[in-house]
Design a protein around this nucleic acid. Structure first.
Lengths: 117, 117
DNA sequence: TTACAATATTCCTTTACAGGAATATTCCTA
DNA sequence: TAGGAATATTCCTGTAAAGGAATATTGTAA
């Protein structure tokens, strides 16, 4: 897991750029307009995203089309695997606990019905 | 998805702390020793992790035990879902393409066997 | 070749953040 | 209650990063 991915995504405009690009490639101008930021800032953020590998460029005449690269996101996904296991484990443990509670509750129900008799 | 999660994980020591805590709770001293950083830096990083919700503390006498919180990681996982769909789509598209190539290849194979005859 | 549109880069200033060293705080035990 | 262990906080300094404004670059069309 390349840590620069986190750095790149830790800036609001850059996160929004990534989300925008998830709908398909866009030019710098479009990105700047959609995000309501100035063109130079858009270019700067795109440079950071490019260097972190989150984005690809292809030049078409005057314009540059930026598109999302999946690899860093896949790596993030792989990195998460370890934690997914943990929370599933914990979920299972909680479930077990609740099942036991429920079982105990049913017993106490039986008791509360028995005693009065 | 809370963007501060990315910020918190974008610092190498903090990422390592999270990974260490994935094996269970640890005290500040243990963390500092394992990561070969000074205790004050460990405390500072833990503070950032705490504020971003990635970590929990429980005080036990003199010591403080830090443990991992799963919620921000689950949110990251949920955030990734959208991208997972994209790369699976792309994978499917690639697969289709390869299958077509293969089919075309088999045809050209037949052709190459036919023509000489 | 000139002019214009789209984008990138530079320079400047301000702010955020990280590490080091020193110190404060909190809790335990003798 | 004095001292020590574990941890947090403060202050300082250096550095990286962000935005604004201006400018450079590149490609296209007249």
């Amino acid at each position: 897991m390349d840590i620069t991915t986190f750095g790149a995504l830790s800036e609001p405009s850059r996160l929004r750029i990534v989300e925008l690009l998830s709908t398909g490639p866009h030019t710098v101008g479009e990105i700047a307009e959609r995000l309501q930021i100035r063109q130079p800032q858009a270019s700067k953020h795109l440079k950071v995203l490019l260097e972190s590998g989150l984005v690809d460029v292809t030049a078409e005449a005057n314009r540059r089309s930026y598109s999302l690269r999946m690899q860093p996101l896949r790596e993030m996904d792989a990195w998460l695997e370890r934690y997914r296991r943990i929370w599933e484990e914990r979920y299972d443990a909680l479930e077990d606990y609740l099942l036991k509670l429920q079982a105990a509750d049913e017993n106490s129900d039986i008791d509360s019905k028995r005693k009065p008799e």
